[in-house]
Amino acid sequence: MENCVDSEGSFTSQRCSQSLSSVEDALYVIGGKWKLKIIIALQEHGSIRFNELQRIVAGISARVLSNELKDLELNGFVKRIVHAEQTPVVVEYISTDYSKTLKTVIMSLSEWGSTHKRNIREDVF
């Protein structure tokens, strides 16, 4: 949101609107309870089958995982690989290079979350 302030220290509504719109877009794509957990699991484990992924992302139902994977694939974060030559057909999911661009975002969120949890425990507020 630094872009909201011009060189004289004044807020500009256009810059704030653009920043807010960008944040809203990002949250729309990666927000929710499960998407970042799925992305992190795929980045940590590499190629992984659906049932394995469901075990790793504890608490997610098969239907929700399926829908989240479709959304993540649509947005370029996940690639679905079908091995039709095998019987039964094997389907694996992998994170894309594009999903790896979220690494700094995930690390920043992790650090912020740790700090926030510590502040809450120490009753800083």
Rank of each mutant, 00 (worst) to 15 (best):
W34S: 03
K33F: 08
A41W: 05
L36R: 05
R63C: 04
E24Y: 06
I48D: 08
V57Q: 10
A26G: 08
V23E: 09
D71Q: 09
E73N: 12
G32C: 07
Q14K: 14
Q54E: 12
L69F: 07
V78F: 08
V23G: 01
A84T: 11
L72R: 03
I40L: 13
S47H: 04
A26H: 05
E68C: 14
L72W: 04
L27N: 07
S7P: 01
S66K: 09
K70A: 14
S61K: 09
S19D: 09
L74R: 15
L69Q: 08
K33V: 07
E68F: 05
V23C: 09
D25W: 03
E68N: 13
D71I: 09
H83A: 14
G76L: 05
E8W: 08
S17L: 10
E2K: 15
L72H: 05
Q43R: 14
E73Q: 15
I56Q: 04
H45D: 03
K33C: 07
G9A: 12
M1P: 11
G31T: 05
A41L: 03
S22V: 07
L27H: 05
R80N: 06
I60H: 07
D25E: 10
I81R: 06
E85N: 15
G59H: 10
Q86M: 08
I30L: 00
K79G: 01
E85G: 14
S47G: 05
I81K: 08
E2L: 13
R15P: 06
N3Y: 02
F11W: 12
I60P: 05
A84K: 15
S13K: 06
E68D: 09
E24C: 11
K37W: 01
R63P: 00
D71H: 09
S61F: 02
